[in-house]
Design a protein around this nucleic acid. Structure first.
Length: 516
RNA sequence: GGCCCGUUCGUCUAGCGGUCUAGGACGCCACCCUUUCACGGUGGAAACACGGGUUCGAGUCCCGUACGGGUCACCA
């Protein structure tokens, strides 16, 4: 075997948002290409004009870019084997279909929809196990195999609509080796005479796919398992053309988390998680929130998807794209479908979130702030302080944009206090010490967090109380709640003035409970 | 229904005939750490669908059954 360059393609049809399963297919293609120092190609399969959706193609590029899956060749960046949009290659498909007719491997068919339906009914009535347009039934239909050559010619010349169908042999064993499933064998009798060229002159997927993969020198076809049943058709076409078929790898499906069946947009909506990488608005104006907008980091999505149906040779879980490229191989892809696990996706997000620096998190923090509509302006916030806060919060949240919500108390003094916590922590002793502490603190000079803690400790110790008894009460007074980051850090960031102010408010509001 | 593909903890999975009293991760539970909540640490419950073979020996190979999935368009 010659050392030919590995070339793989991701070939979506621009009919809407890019399904998460499609994203994984793109990822595996990308990883495989890069692993073998080959090319990752995007080809747009838009041969169905009825399903054209404006914006869908651009969406695909944006989504892949966000994830870091940069194509080497695509309709957008071009390449040596363009055009990469099938609608722009329309004219070239016909000659290949005609060639098949000339060589006796395809034929013209003039059957109307009604006639096709009638045939199907006839076969069903005759209890046919496989009611289809095939080696048997085609002989009783209107096509160039049954009609006299003059009539065929006349019909075509008169402009009568027709399709070109593939002439699948009756007896033949078709086999191919799939990288994931091993040898797959199908008998040609189970196949039907697929339409190759539609009456509108556009090729069907089957024809366009084979012609383009060949012309674009695709070496490996990595696609979803839903294509497995049509793979024999494709293998047969390669044989008809006398072309070397690419190698195949049919990926297991991504299944719904509950119940049975493959993951669909409907199910994802129902269960409350995104199905698209980026937010997508369909033509009716329905908005589907994307993973990005939901707060996911691209690294997390990549890592999560990579492990959904593939496993490294060791037990590592966290991989950068670069590490995935190093480690990836088709042989380690699982055979069976994988249930989608949104909880695990969130866990990955947390992992990557923690790896970010405070600065990197800043934009997310501000984004959360703006969305919260609090009236607090981003411009009014001390950046240095905000960075510290991001650093402090990142281990306690799942999504970067949650930082604001969790850290709001830094900017908005508590107006009320968690009742349960008050009952438990705000006792006579603690309140009295805090009152004392507030007064001393006000009188003291400049204090940082550590100094404030020390002062509190002294105050408490003077009354024979351990600091651990009053810290919770202090937290309550300062933040209004019992959950949050290190209290000394909070005191430090807030500063003396604010701490005193909040303490006074808490004491005024909660009072000093009577000794019980 | 025909054809094709699949089946290890709840979930993602490791396992490529003996090292499996089946390993890791998410989730769950307990404990520890701790001024709180998290994080982290330690530990725990939790799986080879079933039945036949092959073999000295089967989660691992073969067959069958059951169950699940995919696909059967002039859609991709």
């Amino acid at each position: 075997m010659s050392q030919q360059e590995v070339r793989v393609r991701f070939a979506p049809s621009p009919t809407g948002g890019l399904h998460i399963g499609g994203v994984r297919t793109a990822l595996y293609n990308y990883l495989f290409a890069k692993k073998h120092e080959g090319k990752f190609i995007i080809r747009i399969e838009d041969t169905d004009q009825k399903r054209f959706v404006p914006g869908a193609e651009e969406y695909i590029y944006e989504a892949l870019e966000w994830l870091g899956l940069t194509p080497d060749e695509s309709p957008k960046v071009g390449g040596p084997y363009g055009p990469y949009r099938q609608s722009e290659r329309k004219e070239m498909y016909r000659q290949y279909a005609e060639r098949l007719v000339e060589e006796g491997n395809a034929y013209y068919a003039f059957d109307t929809e009604e006639e096709l339906e009638a045939m199907r009914q006839r076969l069903i009535a005759a209890k046919s196990k496989n009611p289809s347009y095939n080696a048997i039934s085609r002989m009783s239909m209107k096509n160039s195999l049954t009609l006299p050559p003059e009539e065929v010619k006349a019909r075509i010349e008169s402009g009568e609509p027709y399709v070109i169908r593939m002439k699948v042999p009756h007896k033949k064993e078709i086999r191919f080796k799939d990288h994931i499933r091993g040898w797959v064998v199908v008998h040609a009798s189970a196949l039907d005479d697929k339409v190759l060229l539609k009456s509108d002159g556009m090729p069907t997927y089957h024809l366009a796919n084979i012609v383009d993969d060949h012309l674009m020198k695709i070496t490996h076809v990595i696609r979803g398992e839903e294509w497995l049943p049509s793979a024999p058709i494709h293998v047969l076409l390669y044989e008809f053309f006398g072309w070397q078929p690419p190698e195949f790898a049919h990926l297991p499906l991504i299944l719904r988390p509950d119940g049975n069946g493959k993951l669909s947009k409907r199910v994802a909506d129902q269960l409350g998680f995104p199905i698209f990488p980026l937010t997508w608005t369909d033509q009716e104006g329905n908005v589907s929130i994307g993973y990005r907008e939901r707060g996911f980091l691209p690294e997390a999505i990549i890592n999560f998807l990579a492990l959904l149906g593939w496993h490294p040779s060791d037990n590592r879980e966290l991989f950068t794209l670069e590490e995935l490229i190093q480690e990836f191989s088709l042989e380690r892809i699982t055979k069976s479908g994988a249930r989608f696990d949104f909880e695990k996706a969130k866990w990955f997000n947390q992992q990557y979130l923690r790896k970010k620096s405070g600065e990197e998190l800043l934009p997310f923090f501000f984004e959360g702030l703006e969305q919260a509509n609090t009236g607090i302006k981003v411009a009014d916030i001390d950046k240095e302080k905000a960075v510290r806060i991001c650093e402090l919060m990142k281990e306690r949240i799942t999504f970067p944009k949650d930082i604001w919500e969790e850290a709001a108390f830094f900017f908005v003094a508590p107006a009320s206090f968690d009742e349960k916590a008050v009952a438990k922590r705000w006792n006579e002793q603690a309140a009295a010490i805090l009152k004392d502490f507030a007064e001393k603190l006000q009188a003291a000079g400049a204090s940082d967090g550590a100094a404030m803690k020390q002062l509190l400790e002294e105050t408490a110790t003077a009354q024979g109380v351990k600091i651990g008894k009053v810290m919770p009460a202090l937290r309550l007074a300062i933040t209004g709640q019992m959950a949050g980051p290190d209290l000394v850090e909070i005191l430090d960031i807030l500063g003396k003035e604010e701490v005193v102010k909040r303490l006074q408010y808490a004491i005024d509001t909660l009072g000093i409970p009577a000794k019980s």
